[in-house]
Design a protein around this nucleic acid. Structure first.
Length: 563
RNA sequence: UGGGGUAUCGCCAAGCGGUAAGGCAACGGGUUUUGAUCUCGUCAUGCGUAGGUUCGAAUCCUUCUACCCCAACCA
């Protein structure tokens, strides 16, 4: 698994209402020459699964209809943004397999244009500098049932407004002293239309423009115009922006723009047992509840990547959930299903014993070592791997029992006096046990049935089942990090009594510092995904060193009830 | 509370006036040198509610209800 997924087919196979709209437009009278979409993240945090859905929708629609998709950083609030986030976002989108059109765009690179459009609105009598402070502005705005009142500064002369705006940009005013508002309708039932803010004074430097500006445009005054500048045809966003659409259209109608994009909204993706809000995810990081944005328990793209979820699996999941306007909460099992489905056919197989029990094969020579060849994958041709078999082995403690009354269907593992198949090796029989002072089984003495490698034994030696193992002498120690859902509550941010940080699953991370892996795992590269047979899917973590391998559990195998 | 949205199986979701797709989950059976995979089967006389139009309604009309979004110098 590498960062480049060059010519992957990212066009969705399924259809949704956005596709239907695009198709209608493409077949309509004034069809655009090509459709243009954009993914416009604010660089104020890492991308998460919800953004993945938006990325798949925007880039996917462009791919599907031979259009293009821009990556535009919506960087109008420098206080919360940073280059680190920009770099992370670029990395995540590329890793997901998408390519943005041309160079990366920044809303901040349109600041000059936006500024002159603001002056234009003032000249048209459609914008004004208002000196009301936050409290006063709130009072003038009214509320849902009370119409707003016009600001006393609303009807200053155009010359005065121009002069004041010039002073704003010249840093003659303190932060918050005044702002530029659009003159629309203080009585509107849509709060967004009650003279919305266009520019505020912010004496902070910007990660892209440095100290060039001390006033920054608000989202509403920047987004639609940026879309227009880039030739966007379909501006796809989430439902909470629906009420902003009239405003989006108002700016495009009142400014001398040539391209008029249309905004469409879809419902954002919610997943149970997690939170998908950059603010909350940042809190988890800042309070060290998790180990960074890429902690494998995080629903961030980088977290899922480190967890061992592939880009293909994430894209598959995004297609599975669909795109609609009804909001719901998707069950994580759907994501897990997409991940397992992908790993089933792409993960190499290997064996790793988590909780070792020593087995000694009495009828195998002391110093002997037999090299066995096993398929890397049981069905697909992924080559073979060499596995050493010797007199002393490890199996799981859980895979052995002294209880001979256990039924063969009930316990398909090793029982004293009975046979079991060692995966890819011999059928063995447990003959006796060695116990410590406390009566715990510390070793099992067994004997192998000759000629059973790759061949079934006579019926009388029929094994109860198949278990995994490693050669004690050749096994390589490794660290395993077992992850569980981060929250104990299915809807952590809808809980009435507790805040989401109080609903953290205390067992979301379990570290097994010493497990025993087959030697072929020594070749594992960071991000290589494996299925440790009968145990789960694991991925080599970046914390692996020459002397210590570290694997993150991606997911356990699907658990079926013991029949 | 004014405005804007949304309601189809436990979850997601097709459906666009002709008689309820699919996926996830769940539950049964089979195969299996992974209790995995694979495979077969079961799972909405019902589409938030109450009326109406129609030969025929999840789809059209009306009523009501529930939930989501908007009163940041956030996006």
């Amino acid at each position: 698994m590498s960062t480049d997924n060059p010519t992957l087919d990212t066009a969705p196979k399924t259809s949704n209402f956005i596709h239907q709209i695009i198709e209608g437009d493409l077949n309509g009278a004034s069809a655009p020459t090509q459709i243009v979409t954009r993914f416009p993240p604010e660089p104020n945090g890492y991308l998460h699964i919800g953004h993945a859905k938006s990325i798949c929708l925007n880039f996917g629609a462009a791919d599907k209809y031979n259009g293009v998709c821009h990556l535009r950083f919506d960087d109008t609030n420098p206080e919360k943004e940073s280059q680190e986030y920009i770099d992370a976002i670029k990395r995540d989108i590329s890793w997901l397999g998408f390519k943005w059109h041309e160079e990366i765009k920044y809303t901040s690179s349109y600041f000059d244009q936006l500024y002159s459009w603001a002056v234009y609105l003032i000249e048209q009598g459609k914008a004004y500098v208002c000196d009301l402070d936050v409290e006063q502005a709130r009072a003038y705005r009214g509320d849902f049932t009370t119409p707003g009142k016009n600001s006393p500064y609303r009807d200053r002369s155009i010359e005065e407004k121009i002069a004041l705006f010039a002073k704003m940009i010249a840093a003659d005013f303190a932060e918050g002293f005044c702002s530029l508002l659009a003159k629309i309708d203080m009585q509107s039932s849509n709060m967004n239309l009650r003279d919305p803010m266009l520019y505020r004074i912010l004496n902070v430097s910007h990660h892209q423009t440095g100290d060039k500006w001390c006033i920054y445009p608000i989202y509403d005054f920047a987004h639609g115009q940026s879309d227009s500048i880039e030739g966007v045809t379909h501006s796809i966003c989430t439902l909470e922006f629906e009420g902003h659409r009239p405003l989006y259209e108002w700016f495009l109608a009142n400014l001398p723009v040539t391209n008029v994009p249309r905004q469409y909204e879809f419902s954002r993706l919610e997943l149970n047992y997690t939170v998908t809000s950059k603010r909350k995810l940042k809190q988890l990081v800042d309070q060290n509840i998790v180990n960074g944005w890429d902690d494998p328990r995080m629903p961030t793209i980088s977290g899922m990547r480190r967890r061992g979820f592939s880009a293909v699996a994430i894209r598959k999941f995004c297609e599975m959930v669909g795109v609609t306007r009804s909001n719901g909460v998707v069950d994580v099992s759907m994501l897990e299903s997409a991940v397992r489905d992908d790993l089933e056919s792409n993960a190499k197989r290997a064996m790793c014993v988590v909780d070792p029990l020593k087995i000694t094969i009495s009828n195998f020579a002391d110093q002997a070592c037999e090299m066995l060849s096993l398929a890397v994958h049981p069905k697909l041709d992924m080559g073979i791997r060499e596995l050493p078999f010797s007199k002393h082995l490890f199996i799981e403690q859980q895979d052995f029992s002294e209880d001979t009354s256990l039924g063969r269907k009930k316990f398909k593992r090793l029982v004293i006096g009975d046979y079991v198949r060692l995966r890819g090796a011999y059928v063995i029989k447990a003959d006796a046990v060695i116990k410590d002072e406390q009566g715990n089984v510390v070793e099992v003495l067994a004997s192998l049935v000759p000629g059973t490698v790759g061949a079934n034994p006579d019926p009388e030696f029929k094994p109860r089942g198949v278990i995994h193992w490693v050669s004690a002498e050749h096994a390589v120690p490794c660290e395993l990090r077992i992850y569980d859902r981060l929250f104990t509550d299915a809807n952590p941010d809808k809980n009435k009594e507790k805040s989401f940080t109080q609903l953290i699953n205390p067992d979301s991370l379990q570290v097994i510092s010493r497990a025993w892996a087959e030697p072929s795992l020594l070749e594992a590269q960071v991000e290589d995904g494996y299925q440790f047979e009968r145990t789960g899917y694991f991925v080599a973590d970046m914390d692996s060193t020459a002397d210590k391998l570290v694997f993150n559990q991606t997911l356990p195998l699907r658990a079926s009830k013991a029949k």
